[in-house]
Design a protein around this nucleic acid. Structure first.
Length: 418
DNA sequence: TCTGGGGTCCTAGGACCC
DNA sequence: TCTGGGGTCCTAGGACCC
């Protein structure tokens, strides 16, 4: 048995944790630079607030309905996510944290222990609420895709109370026949359209297609989805939680940059984030893509990217920052209003199979990086930083509706006044 | 005044080589 | 009359997810 547990409108719910005054209100959270709406709490959803619409286009509507607006507070969300994941992880054999608010659970040795999955789901929900004040939905299924479907039902379909289970044909049909194609994990707008042209109307229809034909007409991915919808596991636990093949860090800049040093610092700090993420999954970076561009909405759209190949794959932040200085001059162009930039590891190697560089004196020093990560974990991000990543915040993102970092900054710790 | 997210994976097509 | 291979690498763009 698998489960998918995720938070209801996570960012919006996270904003409500330390601010009970907005718990019953309609709340939305904006993306970086307050660009688009990226989280809509149930109350706001009822008003019809759409997800991923540019904020400035819907500003008046939100004001009219007294919707509470918040900028993304990643420090807060990341910290609450850790707490939430810790609670959830206690309830299963294996947990795979799939995104900031979702985790897959695997139950190997529980089948004989649990006679009522519905109750068990509520146990998880209650524990998470009690310890973090975050509302979660729990979906159980015999494959990861069915667990996802059950999770959808738990949160979005009437008649469910935050928990849903797909463990036999009856429950499978009952839920899938009420789900649209694009509610199925792996089916987006495009595939949804193409499938509906073939007369496939909902998730249940899709489940009843021949996997072979789906493979021929579309791809092996759709075939896999069909199989999974029928309870045939195709995504093994290891496949669900494979290491990333690419790791990117990119961002739109709070304000446009023309300055050489400012852009260089911004890109360097992205590269350092990539390095940190690579270390987390024990990968080394062989090739790093570096890019910067103006806004695609501007005239004279400028975009330049370069690939730096390391002689020997590395996860060393210092070497990676160094690489930026090698390529930066070929990316920067005076006079361009840079709007986006970033870096991405596009070829990763497993550290276990590390090939040492015969000609390099300094080998990868895992101790240094371990220490570096530990300090930053203990004392907060940015405590130790490569100087080239810069201290100046000129390019920091725009966050006009930022809530306090209640759990990660001393000055923001909530005070209880009696 | 001006505003338009971020991450990952996959594939088609072009360039180049032998 | 018409015909012309196969592999690798790179890039841009598509698709999907949250």
């Amino acid at each position: 048995m698998y489960a998918l547990v995720d938070a209801v409108a996570y960012y919006a719910s996270a904003e409500k944790v330390f601010d009970p005054s907005i718990r019953r209100k309609a709340v939305v959270v904006l993306t970086n630079n307050d660009g688009c709406i990226c989280a809509v709490c149930p109350n706001a959803r009822r008003l019809g607030v759409p997800k991923f619409k540019p904020y400035f286009q819907i500003k008046n509507f939100l004001a009219k309905h007294n919707v509470v607006i918040r900028s993304s507070n990643y420090e807060l969300y990341a910290d609450l996510s850790d707490k939430m994941m810790n609670v959830i992880g206690r309830f299963c054999d294996n947990q795979y944290v799939y995104s900031i608010d979702e985790s897959f659970l695997e139950f190997k040795n529980y089948n004989s222990l649990i006679d009522d999955w519905h109750q068990y789901g509520h146990k998880i929900r209650r524990a998470v609420w009690k310890e973090t004040r975050l509302p979660v939905g729990v979906g159980f299924g015999t494959t990861p895709t069915l667990a996802k479907a059950a999770n959808h039902a738990a949160k979005k379909l009437s008649g469910f109370d935050g928990v849903a289970i797909i463990d036999d044909d009856l429950s499978r049909k009952a839920i899938l026949s009420r789900m649209s194609l694009t509610d199925v994990w792996g089916i987006g707008d495009r595939l949804g359209n193409k499938l509906s042209i073939l007369g496939i109307k909902d998730a249940w229809d899709l489940a009843n297609q021949s996997p072979r034909i789906m493979r021929n007409q579309f791809s092996v991915l759709v075939e896999r989805t069909v199989n999974e919808l029928n309870g045939v596991p195709c995504l093994s636990w290891d496949e669900v939680r494979q290491d990333k093949k690419e790791i990117f860090s990119t961002r739109s800049l709070g304000q446009r940059i023309t300055d050489y040093n400012a852009l260089k610092a911004a890109i360097t700090s992205h590269a350092c984030i990539v390095a940190r993420k690579a270390r987390q999954q024990r990968s080394l970076i062989k090739r790093l893509l570096v890019f910067a561009s103006s806004s695609p909405h501007d005239e004279n759209y400028y975009k330049k990217s370069l690939i730096y190949e390391f002689p020997a794959a590395t996860d060393n932040t210092i070497k990676i920052a160094e690489a930026i200085s090698y390529v930066f001059d070929s990316i920067y162009l005076p006079g361009v209003n840079f709007y986006r930039c970033g870096a991405g590891a596009i070829e990763l190697e497993n550290r276990r199979f590390y090939q040492q560089d015969m000609f390099s004196v300094s080998i990868n020093n895992p101790k240094l990086m371990k220490c570096y990560d530990k300090i930053n974990k203990r004392y907060g991000k940015g405590t130790v930083e490569v100087a080239a990543a810069g201290q100046n915040e000129k390019w920091a993102m725009r966050r006009n509706f930022l809530s306090p970092s209640y759990t990660s900054k001393w000055k923001d710790i909530p005070k209880i006044i009696c």
